[in-house]
Design a protein around this nucleic acid. Structure first.
Length: 581
RNA sequence: GCAGCCAUAGCUCAAUUGGAUAGAGCACCUGACUACGAAUCAGGAGGUUGCAGGUUCGAUUCCUGCUGGCUGCGCCA
């Protein structure tokens, strides 16, 4: 109901055309309900127009006619919408649609003034909990954490931009058996000076030392276990120490998050849900889902084709499945989310399938989504804290900023040192994020410095450079023509490259929708890179400041919309732009 | 043993989820700065999409089998 006319004009050509072809197909061929997709999709080649409909080929069997004949009949019978210039039949029966330049211009102009750049606010009134990053307390963040953090954050931003009320929750690993080793280790190995200098690094050193000793020292193991039990029973001294571990860790995590421009609404670790664990077990028993086996309490998932899931250990302790179930319960109670999204690496797939299945059996009203990504490994092997072959995340960020600063000093020597540093941060951090976000999350990633810090070709700096060039042109325009009012001059498409740019701009909302619905930020990254490439070609090949009046304004306006889309798109990936680079 | 994921140009990755001639970047070759910013642009070369079948108008995409790699599978998260 709201803003009906406005929404109408900003719904994408793909949507409008799909509605039209679907209705027209149904009426021309008298198809009440058919499985066949009657809508359109974008073409991958301009010579085939802007959108194509493939229904004729799929309908051939049902209608008992040749595909080209179906297409022919359709084209003859249907009355074209006014935004379509022409319609063509090609190949085995593709129906190709060419949009009018006027409709394209009009749409791009509408984008220019829309704060959401044509992106539908489908999330209005809906809450989504996104659980990402979630590092373990007392362990420094290493390069393996970058994916959950950066991919999770991009999904977070995408959902917010579509109008969802997003609750970004950092589900810290702040509970578990490792704290027994931590407590006893801390009392024996802690170095106060080191703890001041680099708290989490020291905590990690303590953990590794304690872990190593536990391997050969049985009494040490027993003591660790005893300390853990004391902690779990609320012993004041152990509790205080444990809280200190968490506090120090969060403080250090936050300096990283600050650098990455990542912000959470909640930092609720696993321990937050401890009180609910006995109740959860009781619920599982009441529903008849849990049973005893070798002293442990398990849920049999054989009917779902999965191995059993332990919900209470034989020593009476709870484990992660139980915590995760309790967490869902708590989130549903408090937020009534439309869905809960978990962003973790691929190793946890089975675990999520198991506890999603159990939560369904429990009748929990939650739409649970596991967004997994490929594990990051080193060329030699996977890394592990215990092995000690890790690259710290902070070191990666330092290196990125240092390399970017070197470039900035060379290319922008006139800038103040402060400006150069600010710029180097935007470029360096952007490069790291873009590397991760520009590929399918689910592909395996082998870490190399060269790749992580890529600043050439398909990279964040390419996009930032395109943005800065536009800003520069735009400013020069206003200096040279201070009295011109851009809105007096409509966008007018003449050259092929202008049309290509305009078409790409109209597809921004589709890119956002697709990236969000598939939980794949790389779809947006791809789109932006494509857009920047088209823009760069436009920039290099047609004059705008030197063009005649009217044409000049039209092109400047195209520039302005491109800049808006680039800036907004990059910001959804968590990548900053600067007017000058 | 069971299960999940992956295999695309020399390298790193795409391919709008079944569409037309499989696209980019890096590296390589040829051109363009007395130009609105060359962190750029115009062009060239580079492919039996791991292998073998199948499904259909049409397969990188779906199914089966195989090869190779990664990951997970009762008391870690």
């Amino acid at each position: 109901m709201r803003r009906r006319d406005f929404m109408q004009s900003l719904s994408t050509f793909e949507e409008r055309l799909s509605v039209w072809t679907t209705n027209a197909m149904r009426s021309v061929f008298d198809l009440a309900d058919t499985e066949v997709h009657l809508g359109v999709s974008p073409t991958n080649n301009e010579k085939f127009g802007d959108y194509q409909c493939n229904a004729a080929m799929e309908l051939a069997r049902a209608l008992k006619k040749a595909p080209r004949q179906i297409a022919q009949e359709f084209v003859e019978a249907a009355e074209l919408p006014d935004f379509v210039e022409k319609i063509e039949i090609a190949g085995p029966g593709f129906i190709n649609f060419f949009l009018t330049n006027a409709a394209l211009s009009e749409y791009v102009q509408a984008l220019e003034s829309d704060p959401h750049l044509g992106v539908e606010q489908v999330g209005e009134g809906k809450t989504v909990v996104i659980d990402y990053s979630s590092p373990n307390v007392a362990k420094p963040m290493h390069i393996g954490h970058i994916r959950s953090t950066v991919i999770g954050n991009a999904i977070d931003r995408l959902f917010r931009f579509r109008g969802f009320n997003v609750i970004a929750d950092n589900h810290l690993g702040d509970w578990g058996t490792q704290f027994g080793l931590m407590l006893i280790g801390f009392r024996n190995f802690a170095d106060e000076a080191a703890l001041k200098e680099a708290p989490v690094e020291e905590l990690e050193r303590i953990y590794v030392a304690s872990y190593n000793r536990s391997k050969e020292d049985e009494t040490w193991r027993d003591q660790a276990k005893a300390e853990l039990v004391k902690l779990q029973q609320g012993d004041a001294e152990n509790r205080a120490l444990w809280e200190k571990f968490i506090e120090l860790s969060i403080e250090e995590f936050n300096t990283i998050y600050e650098r990455l421009d990542v912000h959470f609404d909640l930092y609720r670790g696993e321990s937050f849900y401890n009180d609910r664990l006995p109740g959860m077990i009781q619920l599982l028993e009441e529903k008849g889902l849990a049973k005893e086996s070798d002293g442990a309490l398990i849920v049999d998932l054989e009917e779902d084709g999965m191995p059993i899931c332990i919900v209470r250990k034989s020593d009476g302790g709870f484990n992660y499945a139980t915590t995760d179930l309790a967490t869902v319960e708590a989130r549903v109670e408090e937020f009534s989310p439309d869905r809960i999204i978990y962003v973790t690496d691929e190793r946890q797939q089975l675990h999520f399938r198991q506890f999603f299945s159990i939560s369904k059996k429990l009748g929990m009203e939650a739409n649970l989504v596991h967004v997994w990504f490929g594990l990051m490994r080193l060329p030699e092997a996977t890394f592990s804290t215990r092995e000690g072959n890790v690259i710290k995340l902070a070191a990666l960020l330092d290196e990125a900023e240092a390399r970017a600063l070197e470039m900035v000093k060379k290319s922008s020597p006139e800038m103040s040192e402060e400006q150069q540093k600010d710029l180097a941060k935007a470029i360096g951090i952007g490069a790291i994020k873009y590397t991760d976000l520009s590929q399918n999350p689910q592909s395996l990633v082998t870490f190399t410095w060269e790749k992580a810090l890529n600043m050439e070709g398909n990279s964040a700096p390419y996009l930032q450079y395109a943005y800065a060039r536009i800003s520069s042109v735009y400013d020069k325009y206003h200096v040279q023509y201070p009295d011109m009012e851009l809105s007096d001059h409509p966008i007018h498409i003449e050259q092929a490259i202008e049309r290509k740019l305009a078409v790409k701009l109209t597809r921004f909302p589709t890119a956002i929708q697709s990236a969000a619905e598939n939980y794949r930020p790389n779809i947006l990254a791809d789109y932006l890179y494509d857009l920047a490439q088209i823009y760069s070609s436009f920039y290099q090949n047609v004059p705008f400041l030197k063009a005649e009046e009217g044409v000049r304004e039209s092109r400047i306006r195209l520039c302005r919309v491109t800049a808006k889309v680039l800036k907004q798109g990059l910001s959804l990936l968590g990548i900053e732009t600067r007017e000058r680079i």
